[in-house]
Design a protein around this nucleic acid. Sequence first.
DNA 1: ACGTGCAACTTGAACCGTCAAGCATAGAAT
DNA 2: ATTCTATGCTTGACGGTTCAAGTTGCACGT
Lengths: 159, 159
Amino acid sequence: MTEPRWLNADERRAWLAMLSINTMLPAALDNQLHTAGKVSLFDYNVMAMLSEAEGRFLPMSELAARTSSSLSRLSHVVSKLEKRGWLERRPHPGDARVTTAHLSDDGMATLVALAPGHVEAVRNKFLDALTDRDVNDLARIGEKIVARLDDDHWILRES
Amino acid sequence: MTEPRWLNADERRAWLAMLSINTMLPAALDNQLHTAGKVSLFDYNVMAMLSEAEGRFLPMSELAARTSSSLSRLSHVVSKLEKRGWLERRPHPGDARVTTAHLSDDGMATLVALAPGHVEAVRNKFLDALTDRDVNDLARIGEKIVARLDDDHWILRES
DNA sequence: ACGTGCAACTTGAACCGTCAAGCATAGAAT
DNA sequence: ATTCTATGCTTGACGGTTCAAGTTGCACGT
């Protein structure tokens, strides 16, 4: 039981900024997406990840990994999006335990319609605050943090 | 209606990392705090902000600003913490519209008990991934992003 | 072939956050 | 004085997230 090492000035600045960003940034983007199309940032992301996958489908667990979410959370959301006709669940041919989520044409159309406004918001609320150098530094630092939280997170595989 | 500027490689890396951190980091810290004392990261933060204030109290709106939250969210949480005996609401002497939230001795004791484990988790899940230089860069970049989201956010006042 | 364990989900309940509405007070305008 | 607008906050309903528990199917050892 030793005395904990409290945060120094820079650590505190970094931590408080991170904390504020964590609540304000998703709120701002959620807001834009919700007024543009009654979709949350998470909903959007689920569909975006499917749209980039081969054949526009992924097993639930892979989709959960790519959205950094729990399987439970994902399952609820997929049910919701399925009711709207944007997604479809299908059994996996090779393994009866796995369910694959497929992005429907309607889902793709919705995503395409929402994408420009969303990218604009990402720039407006986030990237436009930064220089090219900042963006590069942030990518490097951000990936280190991701690695710390999950050492084989999918975003670390590509680069 | 011009073609939107899609993200380049570094922008995409920074954005995806930010997105993953936004979901995984609060989850990890929430987890630690919840198993240590049935408290959420937000609950902890509310109490921490009060503990650092003069006299251990703040008006609701100031507390909302310091936790980057809506007044509504804060009000619900303060009610919850009040029921646990950690906080107390009092009317403001000078302005009958404002309510002040006071951290009780019990609340302070709870916070003191939780603090070492929490700081340890912040280091373990976040700061330990970074060099001193990274921490400094992140503080600078993070504050730019915060400024973009709210140009007179309280964390920008001190520095 | 059978049991044991694990992996991939799904579900319902409890909890938390957001949103829209409402209320009381303060301050400004006339 | 009286109205008008803005500020500060609370509340309840709704929808989303988490948590614990349960189901099904695969893989492996015996």
